[in-house]
């Protein structure tokens, strides 16, 4: 079977991928980490901070991915997503709620009529270790159930053993199965080992049609970090510079504090520019970040440090 052709790929990186991947370039780990650390030192204050915090809320994929998830839990999450701070009507809704396939129907029902989207993980999340047919069936099912967005995982086993075409093909087919739903491709960066691999996987995913690339499942330690996100943003920038296509970015896992969220947004702002400052192109995947952002927002408004007791847990 002839391999699907890449919708986007930087010049010189045409298929077949295997012999060409080394030309995709490399990443210097130390310099990347230094640049990320230097961006994290920006001092964001006052109105600029409020801007960032509100933007963080708008960009949030409020997430619950637990074995103990129930329709009730999802319902509560949905209310929180729509009105994060009932006492502050000015606080915007989050971008989406992110759930397991089984919870999609409940989620869809609860957010109906609001701006909040429903994202479902799929493709044998989090390991991706299932036959492709089952993965495609799962994707089709969640979309059929009303999911607006699909968060798939790449086959890290295939990637690490050098079977890049398999990884690529799978993304192309999932993208087909997802139809109009937005496809976020999770690289699970902490399993990829090096920034070079993260860059390769990012370009591979974008070439295969990813609408977003996403760092992590959140199921492993060492998920999203500032440097790894910067590495992915730079890959996105290369695709944009090459052919003008704007791909979204979603760091996920480990982002728990408002301060971190602001750092991620500064990094985004200074790497991809203001055009990317929209939930259409950037998401923060998080389960416990929201309340800290809300506390900081109220602190900025009142000038008084806040207590979690005054913010609903979900």
């Amino acid at each position: 079977m002839p391999m699907a052709q890449a919708p986007v790929l930087p010049r010189g990186f045409e298929l077949p991928l295997e012999p060409r991947l080394p030309r995709i370039g490399s990443v210097d780990a130390v310099a990347l980490e230094e640049r990320a650390a230097s961006l994290a030192k920006r001092s964001i204050k006052k109105e600029a901070k409020v801007f960032a915090l509100e933007l963080a809320v708008r960009m949030m994929d409020l997430t619950t991915l637990e074995g103990q998830d129930t329709p009730g839990k999802v319902a509560a999450l949905a209310s929180k997503a729509i009105r994060p701070d009932p006492s502050e009507p000015g606080v915007p809704s989050v971008a989406a709620i992110c759930v397991y396939p089984n919870l999609v129907p409940a989620a869809v029902a609860r957010v109906e009529g609001s701006s909040v989207k429903v994202a479902s993980v799929a493709t044998a999340f989090p390991s991706g270790q299932s036959p492709i047919e089952l993965k495609l069936e799962e994707v089709a099912w969640v979309v059929d159930q009303g999911a607006d967005e699909v968060d798939m995982v790449i086959d890290r086993g295939a990637f690490l053993s050098g079977r890049y075409a398999k990884v690529y093909d799978e993304i192309v087919r999932v993208k087909e199965a997802a139809g109009d739903a937005h496809l976020k491709v999770i690289l699970e960066v902490s399993e990829l080992g090096t920034y070079d691999n993260v860059r390769r996987a990012s370009l591979l995913a974008m070439a295969a049609g990813a609408d977003f690339i996403k760092t992590s499942t959140g199921k492993l330690p060492g998920a999203a970090t500032l440097p790894v996100t910067l590495c992915m943003l730079e890959a996105i920038r290369d695709v944009y510079e090459e052919n003008g296509r704007m791909v979204g970015m979603k760091p996920a896992g480990g982002i728990r504090q408002a301060k971190q969220a602001v750092q991620y947004l500064v990094q985004l702002h200074e790497t991809l520019g203001p055009d990317w400052l929209t939930p259409d192109l950037y998401r923060l995947g998080a389960s416990s970040l929201l309340n800290d952002v809300l506390m900081q927002l109220r602190k900025e408004k009142t000038g008084v440090y806040q207590s979690p007791d005054y913010f609903t847990v979900d």
Partner: peptide, 23 residues
């Protein structure tokens, strides 16, 4: 959890300029 108001609420336009306040 939804009120009528929530249901009508469209996603607010996101301002694009992000000028850092003096620090």
């Amino acid at each position: 959890p939804l009120t009528e108001l929530d249901r009508k609420k469209e996603r607010a336009p996101v301002p694009k300029e992000w000028a850092y306040a003096p620090a």
